[in-house]
Design a protein around this nucleic acid. Structure first.
Length: 566
RNA sequence: GCCCCCGUAGCUCAGUGGCAGAGCGGCGGACUUCUAAUCCGCGGGUCGCAGGUUCAAGUCCUGCCGGGGGUGCCA
C-alpha cells in the first residue's frame, strides 16, 4: 500500500536527519501520511514538522541550542528524504506541511500492476490467517425476516467480505433462538392456526403471533400431514409444532437471505447448547468458581465481579428456565473454548446495547479476553411509505418483510442503501421513494460504469485490440491520472473499513470511483481507427481493464453484482 | 436519575485534528456517442448551543438543548 510506503519514507528521513545531527534525538513519533482534501496539496501530505516541533525544541533546549521552526524542520526532512520510484517530489507548505507528489510514470504503471495481480493488488493482510466468526442476523425464527434484518444482513455480510479480503479466515453464523418463551408461543400459535384450518373453534393465544403468515405456515403443515396431527397427545403438541414450524421458518429465512446474496456457513441452534451439555458445563464452572448464588427464587451470576459495578444478572429464572444471559454465556463459551475462534464479531441492533457492554467483560469468568469479542451495534431502520412511518412489529400482523422490499427495490439497491449509512446512524427508508428513484440511484450509476468498461473491452477485442502495458507512459492526462489515484486508494479504504468495522465507507468510495471513471470515459476516447493511435488505445485499454477490476472488486465487497451489460 | 447513539446544504447523508463534501432535488447548458442509466456549469452552510485543549477542532474534552435507545427474571 502506497500510503504505508510513504510513511516509511518519512520515517527514514527523520531517522537520517537525527543520525546526521540535523535534528536532535527524541522518541520516534507516530508518523501518518494522509490524503489532503484539496487539489494542489500533493497526493499525500504529512504534518510531521508541526507535530514534532515541541520535542525537537525541548531537546535542543536541553543541549543549550536554539529553536527550529516547523518550516525549518520540514526543510531538513525533505533534504533527508530517500529517493523512491513512486515519489516524484516533496514540497514544503506553510505552516509546516510536507506535500508528497506521486510520480505520474509510476502511477501509469499501476494500471498494469492491477490487471496482472487482479484483486490481490487491493488486499491487505491484517488477519494473518486468524479464525474470525461473524455472527449476524440471528433474528428469532418465529416468522419472516423484517426489513430491519436486511440492514443486519448487509452489514454483517460486508464485514465478512472485508475480513476475508484482509487475511482472515471467516465463518458466517446465524444463531437460531430455538428455545425459550418466544418459540413456545410461536408453536402454540401455529397449533391453533392448524386447528382452525379444520374448522375448530379455537383462538390463538393472547400474546401469540397474529400475522397472516402463521396461517400460511399452518397450511404447509396441513399439506404435508393432513389432519393426522389433530390427535397428537397433549404433551407432544408443542414440541412437534415447534419442530415443524422451525423447519418452515428456517427454509424461508434461507431463501430470503439468498435473495440478498447472503449465505451462512453455520446455523447454530441455541437448544443444542443444552442438548450437548455445554450449558451444564458452564453452570458447573461458574458454580465451582463461586460465581452463582440464589436470591428471590432465581440463580444469579455474580456479574459485578467481572464487569464492575454492583449489578448481577439472573442466570436461571425463578421458573427454572435459563435466562438470556445464561444462554449467551454458554453460547460464547462454545464459540471461544469449544470451537476456538480467535476473534468473534456479533452484529446487534442498538436495543441490545446494554448486553453489548456487559457480555464481553463477563467472559472473563471463563478466562476469555474480552477484546476477542467485538459487538458491532447498528441503529434501526425506520420504514416509510409515501412519507408515513410503517410500524414493523412482528406482532402487529402488519409487517413489512425483507422479501417484500427486495422484490420492489432489488437486492443491489437495498444493500447499497443500507450500507451507505454509518452503523450507528438511524436510517429512514422510504420504500416508495427508493422505487421511484431507482433509475437515478447511485447503485445503477456505479454498475453502469462497470458495464461500460466491459463494453469497451468487448468492442476492442472485436476490433483486434488488446490491453498492453508496452506504452503505459502515454497515460498522462489529468483524467487518467485521477482515475489511477482513486484506484490506488482502495486498499486504504479497505483497511480503514476493517479497522473500524465500518463498511459504510465502501459505497462512498465506489460512487467516487465510478464518477472519476465516467469522467475519464467522457474525456478520453479509448478506441480509435487511427493506426497512429494504436499504442495509446492499448494503454487506455489496460486502464479500462484495471478500472473494471477495481469496480468489480469494490462491488463484490459490498455483495453487489457487477453486470457486463445493462 | 444514570449510560450509549444521533444532530453537517432544501432532502438523504459522508467526513481519518490540517482551508466545509457527495448524492438527490432546484436553475442553466450539451445528444450524427467506445452504452445518455451520461456529461458540463450555477446557486445553496451560525457543522444543535456554550466553554475548554491545540500552531490548527465538524473531528478531542466538559456542560447544556433536541431526537432515539438502554437501564436485574424478554432476547
Amino acid at each position: 500500500m502506497i500510503q504505508t510506503q510513504l510513511e516509511a519514507l518519512i520515517r527514514q528521513a527523520l531517522k537520517k536527519a537525527q543520525k546526521k545531527g540535523d535534528l536532535p534525538k527524541f522518541p520516534m513519533p507516530e508518523i501518518t501520511v494522509t490524503r489532503p482534501r484539496r487539489e494542489g496539496q500533493g497526493d499525500y501530505s504529512t504534518a510531521l514538522p508541526l507535530q514534532i516541533v515541541k520535542p525537537v525544541n525541548n531537546a535542543l533546549k536541553e543541549k543549550g541550542g536554539g529553536k527550529l521552526s516547523p518550516m525549518q524542520i520540514g526543510e531538513i526532512l525533505i533534504k533527508r528524504l530517500p529517493q523512491a520510484d513512486f515519489l516524484d517530489r516533496a514540497e514544503l507548505a506553510k505552516p509546516g506541511f510536507i506535500n508528497l507528489h506521486l510520480s505520474p510514470a509510476w502511477l501509469a504503471r499501476q494500471a498494469g500492476a492491477i490487471v496482472h495481480q487482479g484483486p490481490d493488488y487491493f488486499k491487505v493482510d491484517l488477519g494473518g490467517g486468524k479464525k474470525v466468526q461473524v455472527e449476524f442476523v440471528s433474528a428469532n425464527p418465529t416468522g419472516p425476516l423484517h426489513f430491519g434484518g436486511a440492514r443486519n444482513a448487509a452489514i454483517g455480510d460486508a464485514l465478512a467480505r472485508l475480513l476475508e479480503n484482509s487475511g482472515y479466515q471467516v465463518q458466517r453464523e446465524y444463531y437460531v433462538n430455538d428455545r425459550g418463551t418466544q418459540i413456545e408461543t410461536f408453536a402454540m400459535t401455529l397449533w391453533r392456526r392448524y386447528q382452525q384450518l379444520f374448522g375448530l373453534d379455537v383462538d390463538i393465544p393472547a400474546d401469540g403471533y397474529p400475522g397472516a403468515y402463521m396461517i400460511d405456515y399452518a397450511k404447509i403443515i396441513r399439506e404435508e400431514h393432513g389432519d393426522s396431527l389433530l390427535n397428537l397427545p397433549e404433551e407432544a403438541i408443542i414440541p412437534r409444532f415447534r419442530e415443524l414450524g422451525l423447519k418452515i421458518v428456517l427454509d424461508e429465512l434461507k431463501d430470503d437471505l439468498a435473495m440478498m446474496n447472503v449465505q451462512f456457513d453455520e446455523w447454530f441452534s441455541e437448544q443444542s447448547l443444552y442438548d450437548d451439555g455445554t450449558f451444564a458445563r458452564v453452570f458447573a464452572i461458574l458454580s465451582e468458581q463461586g460465581d452463582l448464588y440464589e436470591k428471590e427464587g432465581a440463580v444469579w451470576f455474580r456479574a459485578s465481579k467481572y464487569i464492575g459495578g454492583d449489578r448481577d444478572e439472573v442466570f436461571v429464572r425463578s421458573n427454572g428456565e435459563p435466562g438470556y444471559f445464561a444462554s449467551d454465556m454458554a453460547y460464547h463459551y462454545h464459540k471461544f473454548i469449544v470451537r476456538g475462534f480467535d476473534w468473534v464479531i456479533n452484529v446487534w441492533a442498538v436495543d441490545h446495547q446494554n448486553q453489548a457492554k456487559r457480555l464481553p467483560p463477563a467472559l472473563k469468568a471463563f478466562g476469555i479476553d474480552p477484546e476477542r469479542l467485538t459487538i458491532v451495534l447498528y441503529d434501526l431502520v425506520t420504514l416509510k411509505r409515501g412519507g408515513k412511518e410503517v410500524k414493523i412489529s412482528k406482532r402487529s400482523g402488519e409487517i413489512i418483510t425483507m422479501r417484500e422490499v427486495l422484490e420492489e427495490v432489488g437486492a443491489d439497491a437495498a444493500r447499497y442503501f443500507l450500507l451507505s449509512h454509518s452503523n450507528e446512524a438511524r436510517i429512514d427508508f422510504d420504500i416508495d421513494l427508493a422505487v421511484a428513484q431507482s433509475s437515478e440511484n447511485p447503485v445503477y450509476y456505479i454498475q453502469y460504469a462497470h458495464a461500460r468498461a466491459s463494453s469497451i473491452l468487448r468492442k476492442a477485442a472485436d476490433a483486434g485490440f488488446a490491453p498492453s502495458d508496452a506504452h503505459l507512459d502515454l497515460l498522462a492526462c489529468p483524467e487518467e491520472l485521477a482515475l489511477l489515484r482513486k484506484m490506488l486508494q482502495l486498499p486504504e479504504v479497505v483497511l480503514f473499513a476493517v479497522e473500524r468495522l465500518a463498511p459504510h465507507h465502501l459505497p462512498h468510495y465506489a460512487l467516487d470511483l465510478a464518477k472519476i471513471y465516467t469522467n475519464f470515459y467522457g474525456h478520453c476516447r479509448v478506441l480509435s481507427d487511427d493506426p497512429a493511435q494504436k499504442d495509446l488505445t492499448e494503454a487506455r485499454l489496460m486502464l479500462v481493464q484495471a478500472a473494471k477490476t477495481t469496480l468489480a472488486y469494490v462491488l463484490g465487497l459490498m455483495g453487489m453484482s457487477a453486470p457486463e451489460k445493462m
